[in-house]
Nucleic acid binder design. Structure first.
Length: 357
DNA sequence: AAAACACGCAACCGCTCGCGT
DNA sequence: CACGCGAGCGGTTGCGTGTTT
């Protein structure tokens, strides 16, 4: 379905914005909201395409944007989230209030990527370049990578929930608008006919599909379980049914079918979790409350990492797992160590410490 | 002082997604 | 179900500025 580019019209300006243009755009949005971006330029008296206006507003003019140097905390968060989510800048930005996806993307490309490369870590996979998973001291990383899929799905869910919740609050005139990481939604004046729906976690679905195709991963998965055979997470609880059956994690969405397979050698049973997302029904209009009510994610994960890596040293006084990657003398290895510590810290803190909530 | 180079960031482009018809 | 449209996302570009030679 062909479409004409929004900026194809002759006479529309391109390039850097002038202060007068900024004033016009800012003034219009403050007065009326942006409404339809396509229609905005004409109404605001701007010789720009709607797309350009949206970009200028989202990345520069929004009143809730924090500009300037990224803090160490922010850098770590970006690193960690990128390891889990990849180049999904909008999802990463959802976890960094007041930072735009464009800004984060630029910062990653110009600073963080280079830094990881210098550390000998592949900025794409976040794995040590010289190491192959499962071949030595980075066995823990293999498990981490695996669990990252789970966390990735969870973060995706969080990002969606935030978007949804903001949309809900925006549609509720009794609520004071809050400027968050997605102000365009808050200022969006377009009528939303359909009621907000609970997020459809296609990522989770996809992951579950991948999971089904990788039964061998069950073995690794086993190691992640704690003693009572279940791993609680903010998004779901993973259950083992018994010794003869394998289960894979799933999320108890009302619109997601429970999948059951015959109990043969290749069988699996997928058990929808009653404490998972189905509980969102308790907070139909407040996903944030729902999320915050859930238990800490990845409880006991440190132990698993240690077990799997073949080391059993307790965390240091900072709670870090300095030995998780083995004993490494060089600064290089120390950097790697800190890197993976960051990863673990994020996994352990992302829920309770999420700036979104 | 000036040219060359490197860097950072704002903005653009093209694609995909979701919704309405 | 197919199509059209608007919006959003991620990759890329190009310009301004700082640094080096």
């Amino acid at each position: 379905m062909g479409r004409s580019a929004c900026c194809e019209k002759v006479g529309l300006k391109k390039g850097p914005w002038k202060p007068e243009e900024d004033q016009k755009l800012l003034g219009y949005i403050e007065a009326y909201g942006h409404g339809s971006w396509r229609a905005l330029p004409a109404k605001a008296g701007l010789q720009r395409c709607g797309k350009s206006c949206r970009l200028r507003w989202t990345n520069y003019l929004r009143p809730d944007i924090k500009r300037g140097k990224f803090s160490l905390q922010e850098e770590q968060t970006i690193n960690q989230l990128h390891a889990l989510l990849g180049n999904r800048w909008s999802a990463i930005a959802a976890h960094l209030p007041k930072r735009t996806d464009n800004e984060i993307k630029n910062y990653w490309n110009t600073h963080l990527k280079k830094r990881l490369t210098k550390m000998g870590i592949d900025p794409v996979t976040h794995k040590p370049k010289s190491d192959t998973l499962g071949s030595g001291q980075f066995k823990g990383a293999a498990n981490l990578s695996h669990m990252a899929q789970w966390e990735s799905a969870r973060l995706e869910a969080e990002a969606r929930l935030v978007r949804e919740s903001k949309l809900v609050s925006n549609l509720n005139p009794s609520k004071t608008p809050q400027l968050g990481s997605c102000p365009s939604a808050q200022l969006h004046t377009k009528t939303q006919a359909a009621p907000p729906k609970l997020p459809c976690l296609d990522v989770l679905k996809a992951w579950q599909g991948a999971w089904l195709s990788k039964q061998k991963d069950i073995a690794i998965f086993n190691m992640v379980f704690n003693s009572n055979g279940s791993l609680e997470s903010p998004t779901s609880t993973l259950n083992f049914l018994d010794n003869t059956l394998h289960s894979i994690p799933t999320v108890g969405f009302s619109d997601m079918s429970t999948i059951a397979y015959p109990n043969n050698s290749n069988s699996m049973i997928v058990k929808a979790d009653p404490t998972g997302f189905s509980d969102m029904a308790a907070y139909p209009n407040d996903p944030a409350k729902y999320m915050s009510s859930l238990p800490t994610f990845m409880e006991g994960f440190k132990e698993v990492m240690l077990d799997n890596a073949g080391v059993h040293n307790p965390p240091n006084t900072n709670g870090n797992l300095d030995n998780v990657v083995g004993s490494c003398g060089s600064d290089f290895e120390e950097n790697k160590m800190y890197y993976w510590n960051d990863m673990l810290n994020l996994v352990n803190s992302t829920t309770s410490g999420s700036p979104m909530f």
